[in-house]
Amino acid sequence: MSIVSDSTLLSSLGKGDSLHQKVLATFPLCDVTEEDLTRNPQMCKLMATLAQHVDKTGLTMFLKSELDKAEQRLQNHRRQWLCSESLYTGLQEMIQDCCVREHHATVPPDQKMFCETVKSCLEVAQCVRQLDLSSTTTEDQSSILGLRSEQVLELMPAEKNVQRIKQSLPNELEKHLKKKCFNLLSYYQPEWENESEGLKNSKLSHLSALLEKEKKRTESLNETSKEKTLLLQRQIQLYTSELTKCVQLLQSLVLDHRLKIQTDLDRKKLEYFEGKCELVLQKIKAEMVDIQLDTYTPEAISAHKKIRENLDSELKACQLEKQSIELKLSSFEILGKDFETLAEEYCRLRQEIEMKNWALKEFTQYKNK
């Protein structure tokens, strides 16, 4: 790069956002932001330098030129192929139309001869094309069925018929193509079908521009539809995500609220059942008092209470004595079977002593009498 261009770039770097915007516009496919260029001025300088040698897609100028030439050659070959293909298709359609007319009406001899000659010429040309050796075929390989192109060309119609066909073919083909164009025009705009031929020719000359305009509009609508579809999908995903969060929040709120209400409800039920049990107990006590008053006098009830108190006190004393005896027995059980024998002997002696004391007491009473 020359010194002048370097100085120009360096001066441009000091202009602020102008160079940044120019670099970003030159490389739209590059994932670089203006902030990146501001933080890296040398990178901005490098990209500005590259902008003089490459296009927006990253191709060099020479490669871009060669690509444009190749594209132009491809378009020329494609145009030639389309012309040949259109001519061949038109001739095939003319032959088919003639065959269809033969089944519905009488075809003039000259038209019938015209269609047969064109059909024969096409078939011979197609066979010759198939028999023509390509660059990948060796001479040692035999042709199809052993035929040669010269043998197939002998099947061409008479030369005078071919010459007559060559003279009338352009006009016939023009009529056929014009008819197809008029049919296409009527299909595109049905209201133009009944108009004059001159007006149809005028509108037909603008049909390609209209179709191209419709094509561009359709492509634009398709792109807009794709963008809206992507936007709609993003919005649906965002909406679904937010809706899921809302549902989870509602579930947590419902659960917390339900647990709180359930706790309050259980507490109130417990208070209710406690109050009801207390009321039932009070009612039972009142019934017991009524039964006592109906059965006994107040003095008898007072006496029963005293008797019950005495019995309760004696019961408590007996229970205490039982507990002490059980403790002693448990301590005696530790001594084993020998102590059990002694205890039985002791019980037997106690019983004998009690019997003798009773007998002595009875004998004393009898003696005193």
Rank of each mutant, 00 (worst) to 15 (best):
V280I: 15
S18N: 00
E352I: 07
E154G: 04
Q96P: 01
L184A: 06
K306L: 09
Q80E: 13
W81I: 09
C347N: 15
Q248H: 09
L169R: 02
E191G: 05
S205C: 13
D312Y: 07
T106K: 04
L169G: 00
C121T: 04
F62C: 12
T49Q: 14
D55W: 00
M43K: 10
T136M: 10
W81S: 06
C127F: 07
K316Q: 14
D264H: 09
G146Y: 01
L147H: 01
K69M: 03
V152A: 03
H176N: 10
M47Q: 02
R129V: 07
A317Q: 05
E227T: 08
A25P: 05
E191R: 06
E123R: 09
K64L: 06
Q141V: 06
T49S: 14
K213D: 12
K179H: 11
L311S: 13
L335K: 08
R234V: 08
V254A: 13
H77T: 04
V162N: 04
S330M: 14
L82A: 14
K178V: 07
K337R: 12
E102W: 06
E139V: 02
Q163N: 12
S7K: 10
Q163C: 10
H176V: 04
K337L: 15
K69F: 05
Q189L: 08
Q42D: 10
T229G: 11
Q92P: 03
V54I: 01
E116Q: 08
L342K: 09
Q167R: 14
S313G: 08
L13R: 01
Y272L: 12
K180Y: 03
S7F: 13
G16P: 00
T341N: 13
L259Q: 15
F114I: 00
L177I: 13
E345F: 02
T8L: 11
R350V: 05
F62D: 15
E321R: 09
P170I: 08
L249N: 12
Q52A: 08
E345P: 04
A158G: 09
A105Y: 11
P170W: 07
A317V: 07
Q351L: 14
N161P: 07
T218H: 07
A70S: 09
P108H: 00
A125H: 06
